[in-house]
Amino acid sequence: MARFHPLPVAAVDRLTDDAVALTLTVPPELREEFRHAPGQHLALRRTIDGTEIRRTYSICSPAPAADGPHTLRIGVRLVEGGAFSTYALKEIAVGDELEVMTPAGRFTLEPAPALYAAIVGGSGITPVLSIVTTLLASEPRARFCLLRSDRTAASTMFLEEVADLKDRYPERFQLVTVVSREEQQAGLPSGRLDRERLTELLPALLPTAAVAGWFLCGPFGLVQGAEQALRELGVPRTRIHEEIFHVDPAPVVTTAIPAHSTVTARLDGRGGTWPVREGESVLDAVLRNRPDAPYACKGGVCGTCRAFLVSGEVRMDRNFALEPEETAAGYVLACQSRPATERVEVDFDR
C-alpha cells in the first residue's frame, strides 16, 4: 500500500538553468518500503494555502542493494507556473523534509542479457538513467542504445552521468544525441525527432527487430511519434514501453453519471460503499471518504491510482498510463473513471 513518509533532503544539485536533482535520505526503518525497481517514480506532496498538491518525479538512481536504498535521487525540471517545480528550484534546501510516497510505476526493466533501447526527450532521461545504469552494472551481457533529444546542449539533464556511462561501458552502451534548437558540431543534424525522422533513423542505428524492449519517455508528441515509427518498422507492441511526462489538461467531460450511482472500493484491506456525486470520478468519490486512496497526477499519466474493476462499468476519460494488457485484464485509472452503471466496485489492493 502506497504511503507518504517525511524524508530529509541530503543534496540539491543544479543540473541546468531550469532543472535540479534532489537527493533524499532514507532512514533504515523505511528502506524496505522505499525499495524500487529501475524506472519507478515518487509522488511528492505539499500544502499551499490549505490546498494539497502532488507531483510525480522519476527516480534516477539505480536499483538499490540488498539492504534497500540509503538515498533516492530524483530530477525536477521547472514547469512554467508549476507550483511544485518552482518551489523545488527556488526554495528547497539541504535539511528540509519532503513528504514522499513510496515508489510506484510499471515503466521498469528486469535486467536480462539482451539488447534494449530508449528514445527520450528532455526530462524523460530521468527514469531511463536508472534503467540503463542498473542494467549495465548487473548484467554483463546486456547492451543498451540511448537516443536522446533536447532543446540545446545547455538544457540537457544528467549530461555528466550519461557521459560517465559511455566511458564505463564503451562496448555495451551506444549514445546518440539530437538537439532541436541549435546546430551540433558532430553527430546527427539538429531538429525534432518526429515519426518520419525516426522511421528513417532507427534502422541505421541498430537492428530494430533484435531489440528486446523499447523505452519511450518524454513529452506526449515525442512518445506518440516514436511509437508510430516503431510500429511501422514492425516492432511488436508488447516490446514497447511508454511513460509520458506532460500532456495538455483534459477537456471538460459532460458524460452523465447514472442516477444514484455508488462506488464500492477495497483499499488496504478495508472496504466501503459511497455515493458518486455529479461530475465526480471514482477516485474523487473514494477520496471524500478514504483520503488515503493512492493518487499523484490526476491526469491519467502516472498510473498511481490504478485499480481493478471488480464489477460494473466505467468510462475512462483518457489513459496514458495503462498498457492494453492491463485494461484488457480489468484495470482502470480511478482518476479518469466515471461510473457508467449504477453500481461500480473497484479494488486498489490487487
Rank of each mutant, 00 (worst) to 15 (best):
V301M: 12
I240R: 03
V132H: 05
I257M: 03
T156L: 08
R3W: 08
T134S: 15
Q174Y: 10
P219D: 08
T208L: 11
G234Y: 11
T255E: 15
E171G: 00
A2Q: 13
F320K: 10
L136G: 11
I53R: 00
S180F: 07
Q336H: 12
M316D: 12
V253R: 09
P64E: 02
M1E: 12
D18W: 05
R231A: 15
L22N: 05
P111W: 03
L115A: 10
S149Y: 07
E160F: 10
A63W: 04
L230V: 13
L198G: 14
D49C: 04
P189I: 08
G218I: 02
F220M: 12
A112W: 02
N289A: 08
V332L: 06
V276I: 14
A209L: 14
F84Y: 11
D268K: 09
T341H: 13
L198H: 10
P324C: 09
A88K: 06
A11R: 15
D17I: 00
P251V: 06
R151T: 14
Q228S: 11
R45V: 00
R288M: 08
A142I: 04
R181A: 14
A329S: 03
T255F: 14
R181P: 01
W214G: 07
D13W: 05
R31C: 03
S123P: 04
L89W: 12
R54D: 02
A163M: 07
R46C: 03
A265M: 06
I240D: 03
T255A: 13
T108K: 00
H41M: 13
G39W: 01
A66N: 12
E342A: 15
G95Q: 03
A63K: 10
Y116V: 02
V178I: 15
L15G: 01
L216T: 03
E242K: 10
A93G: 13
D317T: 13
F320E: 07
E242F: 01
E52D: 11
R3P: 02
L202H: 09
P127V: 04
Y331T: 07
C217E: 06
P64L: 08
S281K: 05
Q174M: 07
N319V: 06
R31V: 01
L147H: 13
A186M: 12
E97K: 11
E99D: 15
L188W: 05
H260N: 14
A112C: 07
G39E: 00
A21T: 03
P62R: 09
L309F: 02
P249T: 12
M101H: 02
V314C: 11
F220P: 02
P28W: 07
D18P: 03
E313C: 07
S281P: 00
P62E: 02
R237F: 10
G39Y: 03
Q185F: 00
T341N: 04
P64Y: 04
L159H: 15
V9P: 03
V26Q: 00
I53F: 12
A117Y: 01
T134G: 13
V211S: 08
A154C: 01
W214D: 10
L333P: 00
A229K: 04
T71H: 15
L188M: 05
T264W: 09
D194L: 03
P170Q: 05
